[in-house]
Amino acid sequence: MKIRILTTLFIVFISCKNVTKNEQAQIAIDSTESKIEVDEKQKEYSISNGIWISTIDSLSTVEIKDNKWIFKYANEETDSDDIYDYLITESVFNEDNSIIGGGLVLSHKSDTLKYGIDYISDKNMTLIYLPRGNFHQYQKK
């Protein structure tokens, strides 16, 4: 029995990969100053600029502009609490270069929102709001 446990522990130990600093997710959010630090490789992942309309509520939109994520709702004024910096923290691509997995972090000075990426292309976006697990679907205008 002891040999079996030792063998299992040895196999687990050997199979564990040492993660180097370059392989770790390179995101640091400073909550006091709302700064996001990211390595150069992560900067290339972005969502195409434009207006994205919710498929669930057509009055709800998101404007993507220069790595800013701006929540908007029809007939309501947008204030500074609706403007976030966004960062795609991890990405999995398919053959069409659409993102089919990963994470999305929205942050500003007083709030951070975390989403899982189900699908992002130039025309469609499906996100999973992680605290609740509900889906947000958008189509580009």
Rank of each mutant, 00 (worst) to 15 (best):
S48M: 13
E77F: 09
D85N: 14
K68R: 15
L104D: 03
G116L: 08
G116P: 08
I14D: 06
T126N: 12
T20M: 09
D122A: 14
N49W: 05
Y129H: 11
I56E: 11
Y84I: 02
H136S: 13
N94Q: 04
F71I: 07
Y86F: 13
V19Y: 09
K109M: 03
D85W: 04
I117H: 04
N22P: 06
F71Q: 12
E77S: 10
Y115G: 02
N18K: 11
N22K: 14
G116C: 02
K109N: 10
I128Q: 05
T20H: 11
L127I: 02
E23H: 06
L87P: 00
I128C: 02
A28N: 15
K41N: 07
C16T: 13
Y84A: 04
L9H: 06
E37G: 10
G50H: 10
I51P: 00
T112I: 14
S54A: 04
G103R: 09
T112L: 03
Y84G: 04
N22F: 04
I88C: 05
S46Y: 14
P131A: 01
I14M: 14
I36R: 02
F10A: 15
F71W: 13
T61F: 07
S110K: 06
S46P: 11
D39F: 02
G102Q: 03
I27T: 14
F10P: 02
N97H: 12
K72N: 15
I36D: 00
N67V: 08
T55A: 00
R132N: 13
L104F: 05
I29C: 02
K2V: 10
A28R: 13
I11V: 15
D96L: 07
V19F: 11
I120R: 05
K17V: 11
D66W: 06
Y138R: 00
W52K: 05
K141G: 03
H108V: 00
V105R: 05
V92T: 12
C16Q: 11
D57P: 01
S58V: 03
K114C: 08
I99N: 05
I36Y: 01
E76P: 04
I14E: 06
L59Q: 13
K114F: 08
Y119C: 03
T61S: 13
D122W: 12
A74W: 00
I51N: 10
S98T: 06
W52N: 06
S46L: 10
D118A: 13
G101V: 09
D82H: 06
E76R: 09
G116W: 03
Q139V: 12
L127P: 06
D57T: 01
I83R: 01
K140T: 02
E40K: 12
L9N: 15
S46W: 11
E76H: 09
N22I: 08
R132Q: 13
I47K: 10
I36C: 05
K21Y: 09
D57A: 07
H108E: 08
E23D: 14
T112C: 00
D118P: 02
D111C: 04
F135K: 14
D57K: 01
F10C: 15
S80H: 07
V19H: 03
S34L: 03
K65H: 15
V12D: 06
I88Y: 01
S121A: 09
I117D: 05
Y138C: 01
T55I: 01
F135T: 12
T126R: 12
S54H: 00
K68Y: 10
N67R: 15
E23R: 07
Q24I: 11
T78D: 06
I47Y: 09
D30S: 10
I5D: 15
V62K: 09
N18H: 12
I47N: 11
